[in-house]
Design a binder for these strands. Structure first.
Length: 593
RNA sequence: GGUCCGGUAGCUCAGCUGGAUAGAGCAUCAGCCUUCUAAGCUGAGGGUCAUUGGUUCGAAUCCAAUCCGGAUCACCA
């Protein structure tokens, strides 16, 4: 069934074209809004755009269109024109039919396959330190966008490009060699990613001290930064790694394996997963072939020292280096190669990269270069850029130890959920494992919702001193609405079936049905915009409406059996939509809390 | 300096393909549990939509300029 708003547009266009044959309006030109609460009606057609071209005053125009619509479309039962706005009332019977048809469809909102394939690359961690709060935004966004696209009929490949090589890993390695005395996750009981991260921090401590020492001895700071012994050793490790030194390689593998064990545990706790893993140690040499082809095509050029560049000044950008004078590749070179590799693996229609906005320029250049090189993957590339999560004091810096650790944050949120549940005192009769499951759902849900409810593009500031709320615009609020629905449905054994509409819908019943009817359109928009915050907002508004309804109307003690049936079906459907919407955010909903 | 992004209530954010008196949550204040879960509901106060100009019947929304904040422009990743 076509969304009501779309039906209204088509109907209104038809009405206008019928009444004023010269008008030739199309349904896209019709603007439909929700009617403001202070006026009678559900949806409003804005008449101003046609007032001039049709040379009619708004009142006459509205009356004519309204009458035509009522006469020809059972969708409407009333119309009223106020100051250029044609307010239309949707028929209760239409909404009743909609409810009868869909109330028990747990997949309501899910669309059929559209034959499109899209890759979402997200997470893409460095293997020298554990995940922090900022990474959580990336992971939740990527996972949720993938779920939203799936719900809209896309085939989705969730990809993770692990940055498992490079100087940063060597820093952890050298510090471990110097100071760890063979410490392992097993021997210390420290989670692997945290252990490796500790040595990354250690490296930076020692590095700073060595610089200070050199400066005290009279070296200038810039030179000291380059010549600090531990830095030279890290660089030497990187050279050995690239040369395939077996010992270095073995240590690298060992330490990475610790990190992966840690990441796996974190991902599992967070409910994050992937369909395809890429590793930079496999891909970092890719891209050189593309550069050679680009040179042959004349898209790229070589400078006197042998370095290879592309000139993007005509596009308002700069010249960009693609190969160093010594023939080694840079970050961009790899990304060109990886883009081609991904495309050859999957031939997807779109390829989205979930990467923080600090790389906006890089991603813009990447796409542009691929386009100029005529790579088939180029057009599908989309940068899902998101704002960084900052502390009140500014950006998190792992080197300075100001990061909010992801595992800690998760544990704190679950602890908070437990605390508030105990305060509410409603979970005492739960089995212990049932309690733990609930605290996980509430704590993790609150965390995910907090990070997803803001439009991705916007940066967010998180103050660790203030805990994430479990009231108001939160996952907990929505979970609680679901719990109330489950509770009602548990206590009302009814013979489900079609209900007949005698006495009409109460305003809140109608608002809820209209809201539910909008769900597929919301999913549509969320997919188009790669924007889970729309789903957050929608789920919250639905829960809010439900709570208002719940406070005013009794289901159990409904005015009539017919009403009871209607409300049971209505809340069944609300529950289904809430569960479905939350699942797209990676948030589970409990049955009791 | 060039480019890009943001600026809406004390705080955190919706609204931005132009439409009616700009909305939520938090915080503050006042009410509501003998009746389906009060992790809830109802109400109140709180606004120069950064500023100025323009386009328009109509601008938080579009355009221009300015101010503020951030990112980026490496033979780093």
């Amino acid at each position: 069934m076509l969304p009501i708003v779309a039906q209204i547009k088509i109907a209104a266009a038809q009405a206008i074209n019928h009444l004023y044959p010269a008008a030739a309006v199309t349904d896209e030109t019709i603007l439909v809004n929700e009617t403001k609460p202070e006026f009678a009606g559900d949806y409003t057609v804005v008449l101003f755009p046609f007032v001039k071209s049709l040379r009619q005053n708004p009142a006459v125009l509205g009356k004519a269109i309204g009458e035509y619509l009522l006469a020809h479309y059972p969708l409407f039962t009333a119309h009223e024109t106020v100051a250029g706005f044609l307010n239309l009332t949707v028929a209760d019977t239409e909404l009743a039919a909609f409810l009868n048809h869909s109330y028990n469809d747990t997949q309501y909102g899910q669309k059929e396959s559209n034959g499109q394939k899209v890759m979402i690359e997200y997470s893409s961690p460095n293997t020298n330190k554990p995940l922090h709060f900022g990474h959580l935004r990336n992971n939740f966004l990527g996972w949720s966008v993938a779920a939203i696209l799936k719900a809209n009929g896309y085939e989705v490949i969730k990809a993770n490009l692990v940055n498992d090589r490079g100087i940063h890993i060597c820093k952890s390695m050298i510090a471990w060699m110097r100071y760890a005395d063979g410490a392992t996750p097993e021997s210390t009981g420290i989670k692997g990613d945290h252990l490796v991260g500790d040595y990354y921090v250690k490296f930076n401590d020692v590095y700073k001290r060595e610089i200070d020492t050199l400066v005290t001895q009279g070296m200038d700071k810039e030179k000291a930064e380059k010549e600090a012994p531990i830095m030279l050793e890290a660089q030497e490790l990187l050279r050995k790694w690239e040369a395939g030194d077996p010992e270095v390689y073995a240590l690298w593998q060992k330490m990475n394996s610790w990190v992966y064990q840690g990441f796996d545990a974190s991902y599992k706790k967070l409910g994050i997963d992937f369909d395809k893993m890429y590793y930079e140690s496999d891909t970092y040499l890719l891209g050189k072939a593309i550069v050679e082809e680009g040179l042959a095509k004349g898209v790229l050029f070589k400078k006197d020292n042998g370095s290879v560049w592309i000139d993007l000044t005509a596009d308002g950008l700069d010249e960009k280096l693609l190969l160093r004078a010594d023939g080694t590749s840079v970050y961009m070179t790899q990304d060109l190669g990886t883009a081609r590799l991904k495309y050859n693996d999957f031939h997807m229609d779109r390829s989205a990269y979930v990467i923080a906005d600090e790389q906006n320029y890089h991603m813009q250049v990447l796409k542009l270069i691929l386009q100029k090189l005529g790579e088939p993957c180029a057009e599908g590339i989309y940068h899902l850029s998101y704002g960084m999560v900052e502390l009140p004091s500014g950006r998190m810096k792992s080197r300075e130890g100001t990061v909010v650790d992801a595992d800690d944050m998760v544990a704190e949120m679950i602890a908070l959920a437990r605390e508030q549940a105990l305060e509410a005192g409603k979970t005492e009769d739960f089995a212990p494992e049932e309690q733990e499951r609930l605290y996980d759902m509430v704590g993790l849900g609150a965390l995910k919702f907090y990070l997803l409810r803001v439009e991705p593009r916007k940066k967010m500031i998180f103050d660790p001193k203030e805990s994430i709320d479990l009231h108001g615009f939160t996952a907990t609020f929505i979970q609680y609405a679901h719990v109330r629905i489950c509770s009602v449905l548990r206590k009302n054994e009814i013979a489900y079936g079609q209900f007949t509409l005698g006495e009409g819908l109460a305003p809140l019943e109608k608002s809820l049905l209209l809201k539910i009817e909008q769900y597929p359109s919301i999913l549509d928009q969320a997919a188009k915009e790669y924007n889970p915050s729309l789903v957050c907002n929608y789920a919250f508004q639905l829960a809010q409406l439900f709570n208002s309804f719940f406070a005013v109307h009794s289901i159990n003690q409904a005015e009539s059996e017919e009403k009871r049936q209607l409300r049971l079906m209505l809340v069944t459907m609300i529950g289904n939509v809430i569960r479905h919407a939350m699942s797209l955010l990676g948030i589970e909903v409990p049955q009791k809390m």
